[in-house]
Amino acid sequence: MDPLLLLEQAFNGLQFGVMLFLIAAGLTLVFGIMDLVNLAHGSLVMIGAYLATTFIGWTDSFILGLLLAIPAMFLVGVVVEVIVLRTLYLRNHLDQVLATFGLILFFNEIIRIIWGPISLYSGLPDYLSGHVEIIPGAPYPVFRLLIIAVGLLVALAIYLIVARTRLGMLIRAGASNNEMVGALGIDIKLLFTLVFALGAVFAGLAGMMLGPLTSVEPGMGEPLLILAFVVIIIGGIGSIRGAFVAAIVVGMVDTVGRVFLPVVLRAFVSDAAADTAGPALASMLIYILMAAILVVRPRGLFPARTG
């Protein structure tokens, strides 16, 4: 096996991992603090991608488009939280799953009505569409490096917010015991709205980063949503640290698995069987990983809640 190729694939895995982290961060916070299962979190990724693509089109500038899309996502987060999700906090998980399932149908269709069924693409400005040869003989797209950088920066920012600020203190307190936060005289409603909107911004950011890479289309959020759930379950609900570790692990396992599994299998079985079983096993790999981890640690790697 070519070690340089392995290194390049590790980069690919890292890039996918930080993308998953952006999505999972908001999901795990909302889950941990408000105890809300939000299936419509994937829709936020989609909305972010659509807004960014549209704003980039309007302003004709990639940076300006993103700068507009970020506050817009915050607004979307606030609106969704206030109108629908707020009423769901006191409901059981089942009700939440169903109501947010309904939201997914609604969002996908409303996007289709507004933007049409045709996939959109936001191109990249010249300064981002090049590639650099960080690994000899394998030029790597600059934009993917940027995604890795943004992802790691956001992770650092979230870490600092959670560990160092008053908001972070409340978040930590809320994740372990939200009655206590209320008892402290904090406007818990406002805190919840803020946390949800922040999560929406991160999810939206993931969508904005995905836009130039893949098609922007109705329903694009759902496959990512399921992966993000796998991430936060493996990481332990409510744990940012867990989400980060799990996101990188899932990103690596998925990327490396799907490329190398067929190659490895070819050493043991016939080529045709390896070609069939390889991709299948690769797509099952992260679910197998998740089930295995849950069997050993039923509350994930870094359980946040105590009690």
């Binding site: 190729l5 694939q9 890479l213 490396v256 070609d275 991709p279």
Partner: peptide, 21 residues
Amino acid sequence: GEVYTKLGQKDYQAEISALRA
């Protein structure tokens, strides 16, 4: 090389790395 990818896959960066190699 004869590679089969997941149906509906959207990001092919890993496959592109492999095919270039």
